[in-house]
């Protein structure tokens, strides 16, 4: 196994200039590193949301039974379980947690809890908040913040597009249109940028690994 300059590090003493060069190089390597498949959590949540939305809409449309809405509770369960399994899988490159990783994790934790509360209020009470508007707005805020924190433009763009277009859900379109818009929102917010992030992180990880 070799370092960036193809020389394994040993226990030898360094002179002052070599020490400073080594410190700079190690910090730079870690700073520029992207985890392979970094977009997977976004793809997981994006595809799961599209799948649950389509399935629940079709079930309600065919049976005319609103109790199928309880299936929405399966989305966070599947999502959190899948995310947990994704994050704990061992990788050949090892893993590192940066401050940015922690900030993004905390952002999504808070937004996830708020989304869960909104969903519970909608399904379990008669308050009837505008759930599609609120969920798309929350997820758009999460994508925009994630993109800004990790300097990944596709998430910044998709996040702000989502924030700007989320009020569309407040208009009284037919339910089928709301569902189609909701699916389109998640494809734009999470699936497309998630694939771009996976592609870039795989390419970056491969370059670092050569």
């Amino acid at each position: 196994m070799q370092t960036q300059n193809n020389k394994p590090l040993e226990n030898r003493e360094l002179n002052a200039a070599e020490s400073l060069e080594l410190i700079g190089r190690m910090i730079e390597n870690t700073h520029n590193r992207m985890e392979r498949q970094a977009g997977l959590p976004f793809l997981l949540w994006g595809y799961l949301t599209v799948l649950f939305t389509a399935a629940i809409y079709l079930l309600i449309a065919t049976t005319h039974d609103g109790r199928w809405n309880c299936l929405w509770f399966g989305l966070p369960v599947c999502g959190w379980l899948g995310t947990y399994l994704l994050l704990r899988r061992p990788t050949a490159e090892g893993s590192v947690t940066t401050f940015v990783d922690r900030v993004i994790g905390q952002i999504w934790l808070v937004l996830g809890i708020v989304a869960f509360v909104v969903m519970t209020l909608t399904i379990a009470t008669r308050l009837n908040p505008p759930i599609l508007f609120l969920i798309v707005l929350l997820m758009s805020i999460g994508c925009a913040l994630s993109g800004l924190v990790c300097r990944f433009t596709p998430f910044v763009v998709s996040g702000f597009v989502g924030i700007a277009l989320s009020p569309l859900f407040l208009f009284g379109f037919a339910p089928a249109w709301h569902v189609a818009l909701f699916v389109a929102a998640f494809i734009t917010l999470m699936i497309v940028p998630g694939h771009i992030l996976c592609y870039r992180s795989n390419r970056s990880a491969s370059q670092h690994h050569v």
């Binding site: 410190i23 910090i27 870690t30 893993s95 940066t98 401050f99």
Partner: peptide
């Protein structure tokens, strides 16, 4: 130097 700029890193990394 690696650990300076991050929260944590595992042995493999």
């Amino acid at each position: 130097s690696i650990l300076l700029g991050i929260e944590s890193a595992d042995f493999v990394y």
